[in-house]
């Protein structure tokens, strides 16, 4: 019996270590700015359009890592800042040959399909990095997608320095129909190769921190 146990204990230890190794995976990954979801979350409403790729849906995010950012081209400050930061991140990933990480697909999702046509959107987004994709769709689909990912946004009209709130589409003062701003969440969402939401990168977004966090998540993910 004793003999049998002596052989069993190392086996058991190895099994425990192996299991611990598996559990260590994402739960114990130390990130600097990313919030890792305890369990990957399904995304609803990913039925969007890209100007040249056509449908942008759940198949478009499978087998690769993606970063989603919600914004709009009339966004005066936040979106250009975030796009520049992600472009800088991409430049650093491309420049670092020894970096053990998969380059993510960066997707800019318009919260303003009324003004952002697929053509305008891609021209705008592609300026920051040629690989960036700008996608848009029906307002109701975007609403569903945003809701499923916890993205808050609100259309706001201003008149003479005052916020007109709340405003429905029907009672917007004449001449202001296209003047609205969209207040929105500034988080960046990391989608895993199964097409599920895996982590949320909270602002401010430092390109180096994003690289380290994404790389840590990728190496622990399976």
């Amino acid at each position: 019996m004793k003999k049998k146990l002596s052989g069993f204990i190392p086996f058991l230890s190895a099994l425990v270590l192996l299991l611990a190794g598996c559990q260590q995976e994402l739960a114990s990954v130390k990130t600097e700015a990313a919030f890792i979801l305890p369990e990957e979350a399904a995304i609803d409403g990913l039925k969007l359009t890209h100007v040249s790729q056509g449908d942008f849906d759940s198949d478009s995010v499978k087998g690769k890592w993606s970063l989603f950012f919600f914004g709009y081209t009339h966004c005066p400050d936040v979106c250009p800042t975030e796009l520049y930061r992600m472009a800088e991140m991409m430049g650093k990933i491309e420049a670092a040959a020894g970096l053990k990480m998969e380059s993510p697909q960066v997707v800019f999702i318009s919260l303003d399909p009324q003004r952002d046509t697929p053509e305008l959107l891609q021209k705008y987004v592609g300026f920051y990095h040629p690989s960036f994709l700008g996608v848009t769709g029906e307002q109701s689909t975007i609403d569903r997608l945003a809701k499923s990912m916890g993205v808050y946004y609100q259309r706001v009209y201003h008149l003479n320095g005052k916020v007109l709130d709340p405003v429905s589409q029907e009672n917007v003062p004449e001449g202001l129909e296209n003047s609205y701003l969209v207040n929105h969440s500034a988080a960046i969402f990391l989608i895993n190769p199964r097409g599920k939401l895996q982590a949320v990168l909270t602002p401010p977004h430092d390109p180096d921190v994003m690289i380290r966090d994404i790389s840590s998540i990728q190496s622990a993910w399976r």
Binding site: C75, V78, P80, V156, G161, V163, N183, S185, A187, P204
Partner: peptide, 27 residues
Amino acid sequence: MTDGVMKMIPQKQIPVAAHSSTELKPG
């Protein structure tokens, strides 16, 4: 930024206090 939401608020003026400075910068 309030509660993770970026709000853009139009201003009637940009004040610069006496013996002080205001930096116009992204965000």
